Amino acid sequence: MDSARDSSDKRVDDSEFLEMTQQDPAQAKILRQSLEHLASGLGGNALKEMAQEVLSGRMGLREAANVSAYAEEAVQQSAPLAEKWAAMSDRERDELAADGEHRLEEQRRQLEEERRRAESENRSDTKSRHDGRGWSLY
Rank of each mutant, 00 (worst) to 15 (best):
Q33L: 15
A118N: 06
A97Q: 13
V75L: 08
L38G: 06
N66Y: 08
D99K: 11
L55C: 03
V75S: 08
L111F: 04
Q27G: 09
A69P: 00
E121Q: 15
R32Y: 09
S89M: 05
N45H: 10
E119T: 01
A98F: 07
Q22E: 14
D2E: 11
Q107N: 04
E73C: 07
W135R: 13
D99A: 09
R11I: 02
E36R: 15
R32N: 08
Q52V: 00
E83A: 12
S78I: 04
E53L: 04
L47V: 09
R32Q: 11
E101S: 04
E113D: 13
L55R: 00
S34A: 06
W135P: 00
M1E: 14
E113S: 08
G44T: 15
D6K: 03
V54C: 08
M50A: 15
P25A: 15
S89G: 05
E49I: 06
D14R: 10
V54L: 08
A51V: 10
D9T: 09
R109V: 02
I30H: 03
S56V: 00
N66A: 09
R91I: 01
R93A: 12
E73T: 14
D131H: 15
P25D: 15
L137Y: 13
F17Y: 14
E114T: 00
R123S: 07
L38A: 11
V75W: 06
S3R: 11
R103P: 00
V75C: 07
E114H: 05
E19N: 11
Q110A: 11
R11T: 10
M50Q: 11
S120M: 02
P25V: 08
L61W: 09
P25C: 03
Q107C: 12
E113G: 01
D125R: 15
M1I: 01
L31W: 03
F17H: 05
V12M: 06
A86H: 08
S3G: 03
V12Q: 09
E49G: 00
Q76M: 08
M50D: 13
R115D: 06
D9Y: 02
K29N: 06
E16N: 02
L111Q: 10
